[in-house]
Every structure is written in C-alpha cells, then in structure tokens.
Amino acid sequence: MIDKGAPLLALDKVETRIGPYHILHGVDLVVPEGGATMLLGRNGAGKTTTARTVMALWRASAGTVTFGGRDITREDAPTIARLGVGYVPENMGIFSDLTVAENLRLAAISGQLDPKRLEVIFNAFPAMKRFWLGRAGTLSGGQKQMLSIARAIVEPRRLLIIDEPTKGLAPAIIANMIGVFRDLKATGVTILMIEQNFALARAIGDTVAVMEDGRIVHHGGMAELADDDALQRRLLGLSMSAHQ
C-alpha cells in the first residue's frame, strides 16, 4: 500500500567527504512516496554524490539516511539494493562483456525473469528484445541507457534513483523516455531523478529539490518552480522556458 506523500526516503543533515574533499555540507532532502522528485542543480553541486551516498557507494560522514522509516546510513550497498532501491548511475554501469539477456538476468535478484515485466520492458524499449543476445558493449549510447533503466525495473522496486538518464541522448529518444518514466510513475514506483534536461524534469517531476555547493537550497512543487522564471534564474541561473 503506497502512502502517497509520506516520505519514502529522507536525508537529514547528510555530509559526505571524498578523500580530502568535503562534497555534501548537510543535505536535507525528503522524497515522498509514489511520485517523482527531481534533483536539479549546476554541475558540481553534489547531485551525483547525494545519489551515491544514498546507495552507500560513498559513505556519509555525518547525518542520517532513512528509507521506509529504517535508518540505512550504515548499511552497505547490497543491503540497500535488496530493500527495493534500483539505481541507474550516470555512467549507466552496464556490463559490456555480458549480453543484454545476461545483464537483465543478473539484475533479477530472485534469479528468475518475470515475463510480464519483460513484456513491459520490451514495449518501452523494443531494442532490448532485438538485441537480446547481443553483447551490451556493442549497443549504442541510447540503447545502453535503455538497458541500464531496464535493469533497474526488471523487478519491482520501491524507489528508483536515476542519475541523468538523458545525458548525451538524441531528442527523439528523450521524448520516448518521458513516456517510459510516466508509465513507471503510474505503476506507483517512487522516482528520485537527477536531471539537467528541464523539459523532462517538468514533464515528470512532482516535487523538485535544487542543490548548490553541497546543500539543498530549494525544495517544493515542480509546478511552482516551472511557473516562476525569476525563481528558476535565481536557483539555476537560467529559465526553463528558454530550454524547451
């Protein structure tokens, strides 16, 4: 049962250091269950670090991360993944020596691929069916991104963390992805997406958080930000309407 609006993921004063660098300076972020939260900000603001900290790929040096009411700050990445968190990293993280089929089989922790979910994936990304037995390394950039997303949704997840899924993709593929993410949202899955493409962010996002220098500097409804050019300029340095 999805409690729409209740926080599924919450970060409280999270700080992350990578070697000598202090990247996150007390991030407070709430991701409500059942919607899409867009994490925006300039390059280097700390968005990817936030996602990696949630996944325990980098450790929070201070603060707490809670998922579904459970403190996961000290948990490791496999535990967090098995709690129902799917992760699509910025570099896609596909296993290029494995086939598309092997990538998806591995992503199914249960060891079994659900034919119904596969049909959903094949409908959304027909290339996955076409290249089923092809090596993932031979796919195009867009197809690799599709595979990366397909892997994250091959089993039911409570939360999907997706880091810049449209980076480097052609507009036609991005338009297709908007449809896919909307369909995903309709299934009730919660999405936390890092995105630089404002058109996609506005099309999908319910709530938005903006980061700057390792902190959340704005948190609110997507509609509120989308309708306020001045706010966009202040937070992001440009206007969404200029980037349609």
């Binding site: 790929l57 490791d76 990445a77 496999p78 992760y87 990293p89 993280g93 591995l106 892997r151």
Partner: peptide
Amino acid sequence: EMLEAMGYR
C-alpha cells in the same frame, strides 16, 4: 561497484 548496487556482495 555496480554489482554491489544491484544487491550482490
């Protein structure tokens, strides 16, 4: 790292 993020130790 990705394998760990998919739930494998």
